[in-house]
Design a protein around this nucleic acid. Structure first.
Lengths: 189, 189
DNA sequence: TGAAAACGTTGCGATAGGTCAATGTTTTCG
DNA sequence: CGAAAACATTGACCTATCGCAACGTTTTCA
């Protein structure tokens, strides 16, 4: 149950077995169904999630009902509605599992406590933020001036199985193009 | 010289005067000219910068010479080519001061050392990453599906003096629209 | 299991925004 | 200070992508 999480941590920072155990006790397993909502817009996000199996999607809904997918966390990844989790303000986003999933969740106070008291954990959190920041930047800015074809090639290069695991609609809303355009673009590859 | 930096830190975390002094000794002043390059693409970024006066811009140049502005740091803000700074890999971006500026710079090993040894500094770095991540996300994803007018209104709301301090060309490349379109859009406000 | 809903794909017409070019203004720097 | 370069603005034209709709296929769930 905690194997994947343990590997994640050990591969990124030196850590004592006792600290690892203490971390495990803060994470509790959750099983979810396809399309199950973890938090809805307007709620305050209380948990950080680690994906053992399945996939978490974070997305927003604009006026008119149009969805924008912000982030996907697959096996071995962390995910939460970060702005809300950090500021304890109502989230502007939704978070769901898009497939039947097995997650490990940790609540905010335990999380912050681990960050403060276990250096390796603080280090890993910092690394998550750094990577997330870099990723988001390179995606956002890399996409400036990309046309649809270039965007699709970009995901294929950076997340080869992304288009296979995610529906066209979600993939399109992640890339910032319409489902029709994504469909047409794929046939041009 | 260190007043602004001191305020920045003290307003965000409790810190002993001695630690503050130790932080100051790691930052050295730099004066730069308009359009002076701090690092060029291909170089490895060795410093983190704090802006006392002026403005830092981080940008990339695509094939064909087209520029994309990624980030602006004004008075009281931090800035660096983060991916390169973190990974010590060649940067894909350029960093420049767009006006005559007064900066405080700290090199990477001092910076990491402060992060590790002064909890308040580690905390602030984490906060910078969190805010940067949130900012980048909201900008990137908020922009999905925005038309030019909405983008311009967005900057005006979130960074009221942005359009006044930055050239149209740079502002346009930050918003992901052409200078012509920005010009036309502003006249429609 | 079977009806209903959601999804993927494709065609068609409309349009926001891009490129290019011309003009006038501001900035640069020897 | 003045010539040269860079920039802002505006017009004309063009194209990628969108929105809508139609159709067949897959998924959902009572």
């Amino acid at each position: 149950m905690y194997g994947l999480l343990g590997n994640y941590i050990k591969s990124r920072a030196g850590i004592a077995e006792a600290d690892l155990e203490r971390i495990y006790t803060c994470f509790s397993p959750v099983r979810t169904k396809r399309n199950e909502l973890l938090i809805a817009s307007g709620e305050v996000c209380q948990h950080y999630y680690f994906v053992n199996k399945g996939c978490i999607r974070i997305y927003t809904i604009h006026e008119g009902g149009k969805e924008t997918s912000r982030f996907f966390a697959f096996e071995g990844g962390f995910g939460t509605a970060l702005p809300s989790f950090i500021a304890q303000a109502p989230a502007s986003e939704y978070m769901q599992t898009i497939e039947r999933s097995e997650l490990l969740k940790i609540n905010r106070s335990d999380f912050l406590h681990l960050v403060e008291t276990i250096p390796a954990f603080g280090f890993i959190y910092r690394q998550i933020l750094e990577q997330g920041f870099i990723m988001a930047q390179s995606r956002i800015y890399g996409f400036q001036g990309f046309d649809a074809l270039e965007k699709v090639k970009w995901v294929i290069r950076h997340q080869p199985d992304f288009l296979l695991r995610v529906s066209n609609k979600m993939a399109a809303s992640y890339l910032g193009i319409s489902p029709s355009t994504l469909s047409r673009t794929k046939s041009r590859l």
